[in-house]
Each structure stands twice: as structure tokens, then as C-alpha cells.
Amino acid sequence: MKLISEKQHQLNSKKNNLKFSVTVTLKKDVLDPQGKVVQNTLKNLGMSNLKSVRQGKYFEIEIDNNDLAAATESVDKMCKKLLANMIIEDYKVNKI
């Protein structure tokens, strides 16, 4: 009995979770030396049609809430408060 109810709980909690992806990248006018090194290496590997590479960070975030608007707002807040430094970085939030 206990196992079944736990499974039920897991299913319910899964249903109540919303998942987002957050991508943080350096702003356009901020130099990205790591991206540059990756770009040069790719070029050396013969990828001659390469125009540019910018390196960033990727996060997957689950929110315990099934209200999309409220969940999106809280992810946005997380980005502004910690995940991105708004002086040098931009972020994008996507529902996944």
C-alpha cells in the first residue's frame, strides 16, 4: 500500500513541476576570451565556414508550481538575483 501511495505522490509531484532552461551568455560588447580560443581551435580543425563562437552557461531548473506565469516569474527573479550578472551577461529562459 505504502509503495503505491508513494508512486502516486511522485506522479503528482511530477505533474506539478515545470521545467525551464536558462542560458547565460556574455553581453555582445564584453570580450569572451574562452569563446575566442574555442573558435580558433575549431578553425584549426578545418571548420572554415565558422563565423564566431560565444561561450555561456546552461541551467535546468524545476519549479514546484504548475502556474506557468508564476513559475516563469520566479525563474526570471533567480536569473536577476544570482544566475546572471546583469552588468556583463544576458540570459534567456525557455520552458522545456
Partner: peptide, 9 residues
């Protein structure tokens, strides 16, 4: 402001 990675990495 912010402190970025040294430009020579």
C-alpha cells in the same frame, strides 16, 4: 562593474 577572466586566460 565586474571582474572578468584575464584576457590572456
Amino acid at each position: 562593474g565586474a571582474l572578468l577572466r584575464n584576457n590572456n586566460l
